[in-house]
């Protein structure tokens, strides 16, 4: 059908998989080289994956363990003008994989609400980096939540850890349209675990925390760095 490598081969090459046959073809085929270059450019400019954040969030969405004692300590420490919250994250007990029968269904139930976007600004040493879908954290990291709004609306944001603990980083407030950084930062302790940042209208966030159903709120996944 085609004198060119199949799309999976070209796309694999663009994604970084090395295939000597594809590489040899590319050396002599301007059309395929252009296709791969355009693919790489499009991938570089593509927005972050909402689906991945929702899948990871669903893992955190296991029913809360009521017997567990959750410790969240708020310790004030200087960080520019922001207060720093120290989140004491502990090693979680083994958690069974989420299933559609025992946890909120993922497909269709977890949605990004239009008009409210969030990102994490992670501070690691002197470096700052912004993440729009998933962020890896390690001991010593601090992060704040950036909320972007298309119109004025009441918003709150916080971090729900997989052990059920909750930390508010953006207290409920009526925010104007534009971009806002949470007034508080979360500091990651020596034993980070998976978590999810939840942002939205205060009532929706409260409900999402309680039910682990993320419909109507915006989520972003946090996981420990390997």
């Amino acid at each position: 059908m085609s004198a060119h490598p199949a799309s999976y081969a070209l796309d694999g090459h663009a994604a970084g998989d090395h295939d000597p046959e594809v590489a040899a073809h590319m050396a002599t085929c301007e059309v395929c080289r252009s296709y791969v270059e355009r693919s790489i450019a499009a991938a570089r400019d593509a927005p972050a994956s909402a689906a991945l954040a929702r899948v990871l969030a669903a893992q955190v969405a296991a029913p809360p363990r009521t017997a567990r004692i959750v410790r969240i300590a708020y310790a004030l420490a200087p960080l520019a003008a922001a207060a720093v919250l120290v989140l004491l994250l502990r090693h979680p007990a083994p958690t069974p994989p989420a299933t559609s029968s025992s946890s909120p269904s993922v497909a269709g139930s977890v949605q990004f609400k239009g008009g409210l976007q969030i990102a994490i600004v992670r501070e690691r040493g002197t470096d700052q980096e912004r993440f729009a879908s998933v962020v890896a954290v390690r001991p010593g990291d601090r992060f704040r939540v950036e909320v972007s709004l298309d119109r004025e609306r009441p918003v709150t944001a916080g971090v729900l850890a997989s052990d059920g603990s909750w930390l508010t980083v953006l207290a409920p407030a009526l925010l104007t349209s534009g971009t806002h950084l949470s007034e508080r930062a979360a500091a990651v302790d020596d034993h980070p675990i998976d978590g999810v940042v939840i942002a939205g209208a205060p009532a929706d966030v409260e409900r999402a925390r309680a039910t682990r159903d993320f419909t109507g709120v915006t989520v972003l996944a946090i996981h420990p760095e390997r």
Binding site: D11, A15, G16, A43, L56, V134, A136, D194
Partner: peptide, 15 residues
């Protein structure tokens, strides 16, 4: 695993 999935999405997710 979660880290494997994140890496997979980083590399292949766009495609």
């Amino acid at each position: 695993s979660n880290p494997e999935l994140i890496e997979l999405d980083r590399r292949y997710g766009f495609y």
